[in-house]
Design a protein around this nucleic acid. Sequence first.
DNA 1: TACTGATGATCAGTACTGCTGACAATCAGG
DNA 2: CCTGATTGTCAGCAGTACTGATCATCAGTA
Lengths: 146, 146
Amino acid sequence: MDERTPLEVHDRLGYLVKHAFVLMEELNDRALAPFDLTGRELALLMTLADLGSPSQQEAAEALHIDRTTMVAYVDLLESKGFVERRPDPSDRRRNVVELTDLGRRALRKGRQASDAAEQELLAPLSEVDRRRLRQALSAIAGPGRA
Amino acid sequence: MDERTPLEVHDRLGYLVKHAFVLMEELNDRALAPFDLTGRELALLMTLADLGSPSQQEAAEALHIDRTTMVAYVDLLESKGFVERRPDPSDRRRNVVELTDLGRRALRKGRQASDAAEQELLAPLSEVDRRRLRQALSAIAGPGRA
DNA sequence: TACTGATGATCAGTACTGCTGACAATCAGG
DNA sequence: CCTGATTGTCAGCAGTACTGATCATCAGTA
């Protein structure tokens, strides 16, 4: 009870991708709110866990965000007690960013909640279609394109 | 020559969808720049053409944006000479938004350029995969979800 | 040692997008 | 006429992420 006429713009790839993104963001942030996390913050926690204890620069590159943006994220997660900054003894220009125990716990809980949000977004799709969508998006936006 | 370790975060749906969106936006805006259009502005031109001559409110609903945001878009497109505001004689609260001849021309050119940008984004995919991706995104983000 | 250039983190300022809340004008129903 | 709802407009704010400048540090070189 919303659309009368099918609109051309609703079939454009740009429109579809944008609204899939907005929806995913909403579901993700809603699922993560109980753990005091946003989707972007969870992504950073995941990156820190994957990379060991990277510098801010390395983490920023892995997430394809600007290093000046990373400063604010680390500030935020540090204020929540999820990560700690530590100057790298072997190169004192660098800040090593490490997960705290609290941060590791938030990561575990957050990953579960985010998994559930993904399932919610993918609900209209069959198992095969979900796999195909993932593969298509990886081919489009994955390594070597950004 | 970029990623050493496969990172968990790069397989998350949120990450994939976000970066597909960012890439699509870049390709779209680059393709549309010669016609003095952004992807969002083209979307509005398409909506106006589809809906006939809707009020700002109707156009905003069709694009799922706020009516206060629509004001700025119409201002912008009006300053470029692509659309015209006209008070609706039958309801003087409303502004009917109409494409000008210049706007119709920009729409034609812009649609072609945007089509090319879509093809560029979809380049890594086969014809079948492109169709499946579109269907999957429609099921996820199409009518009835937003 | 001293000099030079590059690198990492930080901050101020800016731009863009899109929201909320308030307002005036207008309409519809009684 | 009144009342309440609707439409467009505007000011203000929030979130995101950038550029450019600055400071400390490092690496290489003479």
